[in-house]
């Protein structure tokens, strides 16, 4: 069965078209301009890559911050025969992707744009606990992006730049906007850019440590989300957690969309009352 997962995050739309667990086509694009157009364009691009027509997709599922709004759009897409579009939680989707690709994973760290999320899994992949960053967003991918932009370092180079850091700078601010001005003033005082970026990665990794400790995370630890692209982040995270971390063996940014596509193929089983009856 061919299914599609649509993950509408705060910064990017991600679409994954899947047959029997194998990715046929995928697309990631920035969420800029008219919301509906971006989602539709992304969906079409993924279908094109898969060489499929919209009508061939049997089931779809959406997830992410903008899932509710996206569900309406996706449902209305022409040639989509099933009108059922379940809206799934990102954590569930990310965990599903990880259990598919890394059987036996016990901890999922999802480092995305605005939140860092940590999920504890049972050996058979059920989520037992989760923790999400609290409000005040320093220590998020978004923050890294802001700082990289003000240091004029392109996103794709951040990881290499960080690798050259000699002495990560310790951020003292918890507010992203103030931390940004702190960074600027540090730059002006001659603190090297790589050290500052490395400092932010440490800050994010420490958030992940707090969350993982809270959720009593066990190894193996698998990273999904945009920051999974960065080898430097994985290294820093490994150091902070004091254990080996690996990235999900696919584009980590697509993990939730992939998980959604997998879940779309599965019958929805609502948890039944487990106790007390």
């Amino acid at each position: 069965m061919i299914t599609a997962g649509v993950d509408v995050g705060t910064r990017y739309v991600k679409v994954c078209v899947v047959r029997d667990g194998r990715i046929l086509g995928a697309d990631v694009r920035e969420l800029a301009g008219v919301f509906g157009d971006v989602v539709r364009a992304s969906e079409n691009a993924a279908l094109d890559e898969a060489g499929l027509l919209g009508v061939q997709v049997r089931r779809k599922a959406v997830t992410g911050f903008g899932a509710a709004a996206a569900a309406r759009l996706v449902r209305r897409a022409p040639h989509f025969l099933s009108r059922e579009v379940p809206v799934l939680d990102e954590g569930v989707c990310a965990a599903r992707a990880v259990t598919e690709l890394v059987p036996g994973a016990r901890t999922v760290i999802d480092a995305g744009a605005l939140f860092v999320r940590s999920l504890a899994l049972t050996p058979d992949g059920r989520i037992t606990d989760r923790a999400v960053t609290e409000k005040c967003a320093a220590g998020s991918g978004r923050f890294l992006e802001m700082i990289a932009a003000s240091l004029r370092v392109p996103q794709e180079e951040v990881s290499d730049v960080v690798a050259t850091a000699a002495n990560p700078y310790r951020m003292s601010n918890s507010c992203a906007v103030f931390a940004e001005s702190e960074v600027i003033s540090r730059v002006n005082l001659g603190v090297p850019g790589p050290d500052l970026l490395a400092g932010i990665l440490v800050a994010i990794a420490e958030k992940a440590l707090t969350l993982a400790t809270r959720a009593e995370a066990a190894p193996p630890v698998v990273v999904v989300g945009g920051l999974g692209h960065m080898p430097s982040f994985l290294r820093v995270l490994g150091d902070v957690l004091g254990q080996q971390v690996s990235v999900v063996p696919m584009d980590p940014q697509l993990a939730a969309a992939y998980g959604a596509a997998l879940l779309a193929a599965e019958p929805v089983v609502a948890r039944t009352r487990s106790r007390g009856a």
Partner: peptide, 11 residues
Amino acid sequence: KCSIFMELDVM
């Protein structure tokens, strides 16, 4: 209350 999360409201 937080400017970063005001973004979510806007979105």
